[in-house]
């Protein structure tokens, strides 16, 4: 950086602001992680290192409640993300590989509707809809609402990937006597794999993350992790919440790192 004076990309102060940005993003998370290992029963006084709150999470009196909630969260995310990924892959093929057709622009708006409508509005609309048709809210309604909400998130990486794949590969396949279905299965799908995987992970995390919509459509008696945690926090932040948060945080980071690495290998093999 001896030649900063000559480097037109350099602006004084931008580097410190970037570090400030990182600090602001990570400080709260790191603090919570650290305090989750606090031995003290008071959440503000430091009482030495301990795993007691993790023990509490898994074996304490509230453990069954959180375990059920975690099970619900994971299975809902799995089902919703799988459905959303399949639907999004089909839609991306239509948008990017099917030329122009009637309803294409409208279809595109529709796919993106779930990210354009504020989450709370989606939540209200979905609740009203299910109550109007007399559908009992519960596990199934959460799965449906999450699938809808996850489609545009799964669509983004899938469509981006498909767009980056030159369509001469499929033309070459057709030229070499493959049917359209064989061209999809043998050529497009394998090339799409990293994009589809990213789309699935994205949808999975989005589903796992959701609080507002779930809170509206879950009905009585069923909880996901976020709604269970929210319920607890309303009564004050307990140390076991910090332990659960840390666990969830680790899961998210592992998933994103995985997605990032897969995306990179995908880039390389292109």
């Amino acid at each position: 950086m001896a030649s900063r004076k000559l480097d037109l990309r350099y602006f004084p102060g931008f580097r410190p602001l970037t570090f400030l940005c990182l600090f602001l993003l990570y400080a709260p998370l790191i603090i919570v992680m650290v305090y989750s290992f606090n031995d003290s029963i008071s959440i503000t006084k430091w009482g030495g290192l301990s795993l007691r709150w993790y023990h509490e999470v898994f074996f304490g009196p509230e453990a069954p409640k959180f375990q059920t909630a975690a099970f619900n969260s994971l299975t809902i995310a799995l089902i919703a993300a799988t459905l959303a990924t399949a639907i999004a892959t089909s839609a991306a093929t239509a948008m990017i590989r099917a030329g122009n057709f009637k309803g294409r622009s409208f279809g595109f708006v529709l796919i993106n509707l779930p990210i354009m409508v504020p989450e709370i509005v989606t939540a209200v609309a979905t609740l009203i809809f299910f109550s109007a048709i007399g559908f009992t809210t519960g596990y199934l309604t959460i799965v449906i609402a999450h699938t809808v909400f996850c489609i545009p998130f799964a669509y983004l990486p899938i469509a981006a990937r498909m767009q980056s794949i030159d369509n001469t590969y499929e033309q070459a396949a057709l030229d070499l006597y493959a049917t359209k279905f064989a061209a999809f299965k043998l050529v497009l799908l394998p090339l799409m794999a990293p994009g589809i995987f990213s789309g699935f992970l994205l949808a999975f995390i989005i589903s796992l993350d959701d609080f507002i919509i779930t809170n509206f459509v879950k009905g009585a008696g069923i909880e996901t992790l976020p709604t269970a945690i929210f319920g607890s926090v309303k009564r004050g932040i307990q140390p076991n919440i910090m332990a659960i948060s840390t666990l969830l945080l680790v899961v998210s980071v592992v998933f994103v790192t995985l997605s990032y690495l897969v995306g990179r290998t995908g880039e390389k093999s292109k």
């Binding site: 030159d166 070459a172 049917t179 090339l191």
Partner: peptide, 25 residues
């Protein structure tokens, strides 16, 4: 059959698999 401008070799298949593709289809 066509030889494409940028070849359009299937990147996830090796040489043999690429060449065999049309025959198997």
């Amino acid at each position: 059959n066509t030889v494409f401008q940028q070849y359009a070799l299937f990147p996830h298949m090796n040489v043999t698999q690429n060449v065999k593709f049309g025959l198997l289809r």
